[in-house]
C-alpha cells in the first residue's frame, strides 16, 4: 500500500472562549491515500469543520490554537513548514469544494472572473507565467470537465443566472482548476435536492476517480457516505470513535455511537424505530472524563471513566470502546 498523502496524527485543537479553554479536537488521527475516498462523518458540532479547516490552514487563530499533533502532507508536516511553503500548497496541491453553492460565489463578479482570479494567484505563488487568454482557456476546459453545458456562456455569466446544481458544479470546477492532489469536500450536495445531489455526487466520484485524487469528504449524511466513500471516520465530540472500510463499518458498526447513528437514519424499507440518542453533545470546556460519549451511551460502565483504547475489530477497522475485544489477527 502506498504512503498516505494526508496523514493527520494526534491533532488537538483548543479554542479560547471567555478566558476558558475548550478542547474541540482531541487527538484526531486520519489518513487519506491517493485514489482513496475517505469520509468524515458526524453530527452538528462534533468538530468536522474544525478538522477540515485545520487541514486547510484556515482556522482563525485566535481563538483557535493547535495544541498537539501533526498534519502530514506528502511526507512533510504542514504545521512546522514555513508559512510561504504552506501557502503555496493551498488551492493548488490541496483544494476544497465548499458546501453552500448559494453563498460561496461572489454575486458581483462573473463565474469566469472568479475562476480566472484563482488561477492568477495560484500561478503567482507557483511562479508560473500564463496570460489572460491562457487562464480563460483553462477555466473553460475545467468547466467542460464538470459537464457544464455551454462553458463559453457560463464563463461570462453571473452566479444568479445559474441554478443550485450548476453553482455546485462551478465550485467543483473551482477546486479542480490547479490540478490538486487532495480534494476536500465539505458536505457536497447537501444544499441540493435529492435528484440533483445524486447527479453531483456521481460527477464528483467520476472526476476524483479519473484523476486518482485523494478525496476527504465531510458529511452528516450516512447514506451519502455509504454511496461515495470507501473508508469512513466517525467523529463524536472532537474524537474519532470508529473508523473502517465502508462496507465493514455499515455491516458491523462497533462503537455504540456509530450503531445509534445508523439506527437513527430513516430506512427506505419502512422499518425505522425512531429511538434517537438521549442527551446532547457535551460542553467542550468541561467534557466528560474518559470516553466523551459516556453520558449518552446505553452501555456505559465504570471502565468508561478511563479513555477507551483503540481496539482493532476487523481488517483496518478500529473502534474506541471498552466493550470491544480485539478481533483475531487478520492475515
Amino acid at each position: 500500500m502506498n504512503a498516505p498523502l494526508l496523514d493527520v496524527a494526534g491533532l488537538s485543537v483548543d479554542f479560547a472562549t471567555y478566558g476558558r479553554q475548550a478542547r474541540v479536537l482531541d487527538g484526531v488521527s486520519l489518513q487519506v491515500r491517493a485514489g482513496q475516498h475517505a469520509a468524515l462523518v458526524g453530527e452538528t458540532g462534533c468538530g468536522k469543520s474544525v478538522t477540515l479547516r485545520a487541514i486547510m490552514g484556515i482556522l482563525k487563530s485566535p481563538p483557535a490554537s493547535i495544541a498537539a499533533g501533526s498534519i502530514g502532507f506528502d511526507g512533510a508536516d504542514l504545521l512546522t513548514m514555513p508559512a510561504r511553503q504552506r501557502d503555496a500548497l493551498k488551492g493548488t496541491a490541496m483544494s476544497m469544494v465548499f458546501q453552500d453553492p448559494m453563498t460561496a460565489l461572489n454575486p458581483v463578479f462573473t463565474i469566469g472572473d472568479q475562476l480566472a482570479t484563482i488561477i492568477k494567484y495560484a500561478d503567482r505563488r507557483m511562479g508560473v507565467r500564463r496570460d489572460k487568454q491562457g487562464r480563460k482557456q483553462r477555466v473553460i476546459e475545467v468547466l467542460d470537465q464538470v459537464r457544464m453545458p455551454d462553458p463559453e456562456r457560463i464563463f461570462g455569466a453571473y452566479p444568479i443566472m445559474l441554478s443550485g446544481g450548476m453553482r455546485q458544479r462551478v465550485l467543483i470546477a473551482m477546486a479542480l482548476l490547479n490540478e490538486p492532489r487532495l480534494l476536500i469536500a465539505d458536505e457536497p450536495g447537501t444544499a441540493l435536492d435529492v435528484t440533483t445531489q445524486a447527479e453531483i455526487l456521481a460527477l464528483l466520484n467520476d472526476l476524483v476517480a479519473a484523476r486518482s485524487l485523494a478525496l476527504l469528504m465531510i458529511t452528516h449524511n450516512l447514506g451519502v457516505v455509504r454511496e461515495m466513500a470507501d473508508y469512513v471516520y466517525v467523529m463524536y465530540a472532537g474524537t474519532i470513535v470508529e473508523h473502517g472500510p465502508t462496507e465493514a463499518l455499515f455491516e458491523r458498526p462497533s462503537h455504540p455511537y456509530t450503531q445509534a447513528l445508523i439506527e437513527c437514519v430513516p430506512k427506505l424499507s419502512g422499518t425505522s424505530t425512531f429511538k434517537g440518542i438521549d442527551g446532547t453533545i457535551p460542553d467542550y470546556v468541561d467534557p466528560p472524563v474518559g470516553c466523551r460519549f459516556r453520558p449518552r451511551c446505553p452501555h456505559r460502565h465504570d471502565a468508561c471513566f478511563e479513555r477507551p483504547p483503540n481496539v482493532t475489530v476487523g481488517a483496518n477497522h478500529v473502534a474506541a470502546c471498552w466493550l470491544r475485544q480485539p478481533a483475531e489477527e487478520v492475515a
Partner: peptide
C-alpha cells in the same frame, strides 16, 4: 436537525 434529534422529534 441532526438525525439523532430528528428521530426523537418524530417519535
Amino acid at each position: 436537525l441532526d438525525v439523532s434529534v430528528q428521530a426523537k422529534i418524530i417519535d
